[in-house]
Structures are given as structure tokens and as C-alpha cells.
Design a protein around this nucleic acid. Structure first.
Lengths: 337, 337
DNA sequence: GTGAAAGCGCTAACAC
DNA sequence: GTGTTAGCGCTTTCAC
């Protein structure tokens, strides 16, 4: 079933049928209806491969995540898929597995498939050199967007959460509740989000007139641990070293869960002995005991913005897109802090 | 940068260059090297849109999941993506959001994009009529595979876990530990996996000479709850109704987590008052307290088999593929049961 | 308002 | 072992 057959069936030319289908150029109402009904009747569906070849671009977009098994990424993926489907964009999922060198392979695939765009949702910090390589190796028409990581200074529209402020709010809350000293556990060096959150932590501590204690900052960038395991390990190590603290701000809900496990395994109480706050607002947070206090995300809002970005660029009416869009996190107070 | 340019640069014809690149037909070692080095030098990458248009098929495959936010699906997605990438298959992610009618849209997209295949990883039971519609609306060359749901009687190669046996083993373990009565909480009516597991539950109960008690079977198919929330709700309801039981076999780790929360909220102890076993073996199971006893999955093995299926079909050497491949689950004994 | 024709980049007969 | 040729299904000038 090709466009040619629809043309033959209607007695029109392929050009006219195409015009109707893409709504480009003038067509009489009569022809339009004829074409539309015939398309319907024959069950014709355009071949997107042919469309893509002819126009130079497919309509699909690559979604690059660091780790789809991480709740935040899975949730983001769901929301993006819903939002982008609305405007006819298919998602090609590419998982980096935290190996940044795979980003170059991703770029190759994007080029080979002539994709419409790439959404970078990598939590790992991408070094400037590599960002430039990505931008340089991609055709100019390939739309790039970054989620979670500010890449706006490279001309890449970035959609992020207010991580610094969120961390500040969390730490302030902990201090006010008397949970000082406050520790911070996250990937920091190798994660831009981690860095932003750490900055918020620093701000709040300093603003309270307290000193920064290196022993309270646990960056697991250089370990082979991830997610829950990292939280568990970092907390255990700190406890082993005899570090004194009354609360922990974790870089993700998963880290927080691991941290909770370590605390409970010592027979300590949450939040009485050690309070814990996570980052992300994943849905299982209300199902663990004690319930996890966390900083929520606005994935729905973020996905809508990304959709608007693609829509606007597609219509060409775009002009310069907004380079930075920031979404709010809220402190969801539950039982763990 | 097109194949034609590579041909011009080497002084060969497009056909020869194509032959080298696809390793089809005879080429002299000399020409082959020349082409390969020129391709390298020029940084030429084949346009997969053109390839797909010409050959009639793209190399990408659609992965259809019910709910990417569910741990099992996210984990499966990761493993599949790794396995399929090895043989040059890109994954287009399609999320049903538990709305089966979206399956028809999926089929349309698959057709429009001339995808190589579809992997159905839907936990929701697909009614026979709809399976037939899917098969009927898809071109004959589109490879179909089913994961988690047996669709082999429709001629669709299916990759599943030994759910019935796994449930039997879990229930037997519970009975032997004296945790009778055993309850079962899952989607049953609307989930094929749920049905298999339920069958295992029934088998074990009957084999032990016990009577099946309807009050101990909680099917939440007709509620609007999912995952943790469903487990929490079902358990709470049962407890409210005064149903007596000493253990619960849950249809997923998420359900188990919700169930644990409900039990703990009543001040009951796990596993002493109520023991709980999950399904899936997700990684966070070792991070909740008490640690979740669960039936593990073999996602790595499953993904490899799916890869072999696609590889075999690609090489045409295939012949009839194996219609049913079953993977073992193991009872991972931890603290919750 | 509609049609004819050219061609996107590639592959697969078919020649030689 | 290599080249020539003819499209895959669509869009887009350019005529009329």
C-alpha cells in the first residue's frame, strides 16, 4: 500500500495526494476529502523511512539516559514518551550504563538514522571536550536538548530542576530540626546534578554559620558502587570511622534507601538518631518504612516543556529557543526526617 | 557524505563499495582494504533510512512494555538494549501505560517505520482477538516475540519464566515454615503472569491437602491501584476484614513492598506475624528492611535468547524458531519470609 | 489547483 | 571481481 496506489485509486497524481497528507500547498476541498476518505478506506500509512529519506530527517528522537534502571530515569522516560508521542515523535532509547564513551556511539547512531534530535538525560557529567565533540559530530539540523544537566553554555537548551535551592531547603530544614551535623552523600565530582546539590548543601551550612566538615561529605564517584549499594556502603563506612552526624541529605532516593538500610542495620533509629532526606520523589518513597522524606521532581512539567521545544523547532516558527528552563522541587515531608 | 562519494574517491562503483560494507558478494582483498580505509578516512556512515527503504526493513525493533516505571520492565529494557545493540538493533520504546488499546497504535507505528520486529513485554493479558489483530495487521516479515506472556499458540516465540513452579516453590517453603494460611496478592484476571503464578499457588496448596480459601486470594485487576499502592491497599483491606493469614505471596516485588508497609503500619512483625515473598528479584529488595525474600528473574539469560532469536532470523538460516523458552526463577531467601 | 519529473542514498539483479 | 541499471516510496520544484 503506497502513496502511488492511493493516487491511482483516486485518479489523482502522487503529488496531490502528498499535498493533502502533509497539508502543504493548495488543494480543493473536494480533492482533499476524496484523498482522505480513500486513505482511510485503503488503510494507507505513509512509509516513514521514505519520508525520512526524502526530507533528510526521520521523526524519531534518541533519548540517552545514564541508567534506565534508576527510578528517576525510568520515570522521566515514561513522561517523555507520553509527551512526545502527542506530537508524533518516537523515542529511540539509548542506555549509557554510566559509560560516557558510549556517547560517541550514540552520536553515530543518531547520524546514521538521521534522527530528528537527541535528548541527553545523562546524570554523569559530560566533559566539555566531549560535549563539543557531540555537537560537532552532529548535523546542524539535529536538535539537542539536555535534561538534568546544564549544557546551555554550549548552546544546548537545558531543562533542569532547582537542585541547589532544593538542597538548601532540605539542609535548612534539617538544621532547624536540630539534626546537625548534616552529612551529604552523592556522586559529586562526576555528576553535575550532584555538584548543584552539593552547592546547595554548602550554601545552607555556611549561611547557618557552621563550618564545612570534609568528613561529612561522601562522594562515591570513585567507587564501583551505584544506587542503593552506594548509599549503604558510604553510610557504613562513615559509621565505621566513627564520624558523628545526625542527618544525611542523599543525592537520590535510591541512595537514601541504602543509607536507611545501613542506619537500621546498626540498630539506630530514623529519624531520631539519624534523619534522612532523598532526592527525586519516586513513588516507592511512601511505601518504605519509615516513609522517605524527599525532594520531589516535576517530570510532567519538564516533559511538556521538552515537547514544546520540539514542537516549536518543528514549526520552524521557533527562532531562538529558551536556553534554560528550571523546574521546582518541593520538600515532601514524610517520616524519615 | 554518501556511498557515492566513497565510490568516487576510491574510483570504484557504488555497488562494489556496498558489497564491501555489507560483506555480500565477492570482492578482492585489495579493493576491500581500499574501501574500508577510505570509509574510515572520510568518516562515512551509511544512511540507515536509505538502507531501510531499499531493503524494505529498518534494523530497529519496537519494545512494547506495559509500564516502564515498573522495576521489572526497566531492568528488562536495560538488558535487552545491551543484548540487541550487540547485533546492531536499535530499540524503539513504546509504553502502553497499561492501556491495551494503545497496542493498535503501536502496530501502526511499527508498520509506518517498517521496523524489523516487535517485542511484546506486556504484563497485561492481551485478549486472543487482539493478538490476532496485531499479527494480522503486521507484515509477514515483521518478527514478533513475546516476553513474560505465553503467546506461542499464536505462533509467536515466547520467552517466559517458570512462574508456576516458582510460585509452587515459594508456597511450599511458606507452608513448611508453618506460615499457613498463605495468601496470594496479584493481578490475576488481567495478567497472564499473574495467572501462572496463581496456578502455582493453587497447586502447592492442594498438594499440601489444604483447601483453597477465596478470602486469601486478592486479585486487584479491577481496582485502579498499581504496584506498591495495590499491595498496600489489598493487604489493608484483608486485615480490615479480619482475614487470618500468616504469609503472603505477592505478584511482584513492588506489591510485596506495599504489603510490607501495610503490615508494619499495623504494628505487626515481618516475618514473625506475617511473612512476605515477592516476585522479580529487583535490586532494591536487599535494601529494604526487612530484606525482601523474592523469586529472582534471569533477565540476562532471557535477553540473550531474544538476541539469538533475532540473529538467527536475520541470517535467514533460521528455519522455525523455538516457540517457547523458559527461564528459571530461584527463591532468594532473605529476611521477609 | 493539479501533474510530470527528478531524486533522496542505498542495494540487488544482471551483465561483463 | 566489478560496473551498470533500476528502483525502494516519498516530496518538491517547476510547469501548466
Amino acid at each position: 500500500m503506497t502513496l502511488r496506489e492511493v493516487a491511482r485509486e483516486t485518479g489523482l497524481s502522487p503529488a496531490t495526494v502528498s499535498r493533502v497528507l502533509r497539508d502543504s500547498g493548495p488543494v480543493s476541498a473536494k480533492t482533499r476529502n476524496l484523498v482522505l476518505s480513500t486513505v482511510e478506506r485503503l488503510g494507507y500509512r505513509p512509509n516513514s523511512l521514505a519520508q525520512g529519506l526524502r526530507t533528510g530527517r526521520s521523526t524519531a528522537v534518541a533519548l540517552v539516559v545514564s541508567d534506565i534502571e534508576q527510578g528517576w530515569h525510568a520515570s522521566l522516560t515514561k513522561h517523555l514518551q507520553v509527551s512526545l508521542e502527542e506530537i508524533g515523535i518516537d523515542l529511540i532509547l539509548m542506555n549509557l550504563g554510566h559509560e560516557l564513551r558510549r556517547l560517541d556511539m550514540v552520536v553515530e547512531r543518531v547520524q546514521a538514522m538521521r534522527l530528528r534530535g537527541v535528548i541527553l538525560a545523562a546524570s554523569d557529567r559530560i566533559p566539555p571536550k566531549q560535549v563539543k565533540r557531540v555537537v560537532g559530530n552532529l548535523d546542524k539540523e539535529v536538535l539537542i536538548a539536555s535534561i538534568g544537566q546544564r549544557l546551555d553554555r554550549y548552546g544546548i537548551p537545558s531543562f533542569v530542576h532547582s537542585d541547589t535551592e532544593a538542597a538548601e531547603a532540605a539542609v535548612e530544614y534539617l538544621l532547624q530540626k536540630g539534626c546537625s551535623p548534616v552529612a551529604f552523600c552523592s556522586r559529586i565530582r562526576t555528576s553535575t546534578m550532584g555538584k548543584e546539590r552539593f552547592q546547595g548543601y554548602l550554601n545552607a551550612i555556611e549561611r547557618a554559620g557552621l563550618a564545612i566538615d570534609e568528613n561529612l561529605v561522601w562522594d562515591y564517584s570513585d567507587t564501583s558502587f551505584f544506587r542503593q549499594a552506594a548509599g549503604y556502603k558510604m553510610l557504613n563506612d562513615a559509621l565505621d570511622r566513627g564520624v558523628k552526624f545526625k542527618s544525611v541529605l542523599a543525592g537520590s532516593d535510591e541512595i537514601a534507601l541504602g543509607a536507611m538500610a545501613a542506619v537500621l542495620d546498626r540498630g539506630l533509629r530514623i529519624p531520631d538518631d539519624i534523619a534522612i532526606i532523598g532526592f527525586g520523589g519516586l513513588d516507592w518513597g511512601v511505601s518504605v518504612r519509615p516513609r522517605l522524606t524527599t525532594l520531589t521532581s516535576d517530570l510532567a512539567g519538564l516533559s511538556e516543556s521538552v515537547r514544546e521545544f520540539f514542537l516549536q523547532q518543528k514549526n520552524g516558527a521557533g527562532g531562538k529557543p529558551q536556553m534554560l528552563t528550571v523546574f521546582r522541587r518541593e520538600l515532601a515531608l514524610r517520616a524519615s526526617a
